[in-house]
């Protein structure tokens, strides 16, 4: 990465921190409402040293990974089936349309009732948030596969399985990856909501606990953690997409 490019990326965050620091130093706002950068950094350091930072971040990461993995395992095959079968699509479309418009957090009380307040309920919320973007993008990627390319396979006598593996899957891959990337982004948002409602660990829990203790500095630490975690997972996924689909220029769209 070129140095000037890094500077362009860092300029805005540095400017915000600078304004924040100067404002806090000059007493422009109340330190209770917006704590100073030094206080936030100090809280982050102490949380890192006592291990709580890693504990809560890894708890959230694990929930996202589990929910995301299970959603991918269910949504991708179902998306292929719906993309390939018009009748299956007609059967499921209205039900899925109804379900995807219900925010996962709206049924959080029911999820807690069914799965308790343990890990499973959080994984279920992540699953629900992640499932639909992956499903819909897989379905559209499969249904939108260029029929002219599939016809090449038919013209040259490729079997159904060969056409599936060599033409349909690679053709749908950029769309599937876009869905997974969107799903990953949604999974973080919904997970934090779930952790704010009922959790004993995780970044959402840190924020909720800090609110109870009026520790705005710890809330900001939680927000930073969330931003870093979301950006990191998105960055890793984009890098993976570039590697898997170089023909699409790695451009699988913005979130």
């Amino acid at each position: 990465m070129r140095l000037d490019f890094i500077w362009v990326k860092l300029a805005m965050p540095l400017a915000i921190i600078l304004v924040w620091w100067i404002g806090s130093d000059l007493g422009v706002w109340n330190g209770y409402v917006i704590p100073s950068p030094e206080r936030v950094a100090s809280s982050m350091w102490s949380m890192a040293m006592d291990g709580s930072l890693l504990k809560h971040a890894s708890a959230s990461f694990l929930r996202v990974i589990w929910g995301f993995a299970i959603a991918s395992l269910v949504a991708i095959p179902l998306g292929f089936a719906m993309g390939l079968s018009r009748s299956l699509e007609r059967w499921l479309q209205s039900t899925l349309d109804f379900m995807r418009h219900v925010p996962p957090l709206a049924i959080m009380p029911m999820v807690i009732l069914w799965f308790g307040i343990g890990e499973v309920s959080k994984v279920v919320v992540v699953f629900m948030a992640t499932f639909f973007p992956i499903l819909l993008n897989t379905q559209s990627g499969v249904a939108g596969c260029d029929t002219k390319l599939l016809e090449v396979g038919r013209a040259f006598g490729l079997s159904r399985l060969e056409r599936f593996n060599r033409i349909l899957v690679p053709s749908a891959l950029p769309s599937i990856l876009l869905g997974m990337r969107l799903g990953l982004s949604y999974s973080w948002r919904s997970l934090i909501g779930a952790e704010l409602i009922a959790a004993a660990s995780g970044i959402g829990y840190v924020i909720h606990d800090a609110e109870q203790l009026s520790r705005s500095d710890v809330i900001i630490v939680g927000v930073f953690l969330l931003g870093f975690a979301g950006s990191l997972s998105d960055h890793l996924f984009t890098a993976l997409s570039r590697r898997l689909t170089p023909w699409s220029g790695g451009d699988i769209g913005g979130v």
Binding site: K148, L149, L158, S171, W247
Partner: peptide
């Protein structure tokens, strides 16, 4: 068959496109 358009698979290299069939 050779079609009106080349219909090459964009994810395959030139050689892989030829090998496809």
């Amino acid at each position: 068959m050779v079609f009106q358009e080349p219909r090459l698979m964009p994810w395959l290299s030139v050689r892989e496109n030829v090998e496809l069939v």
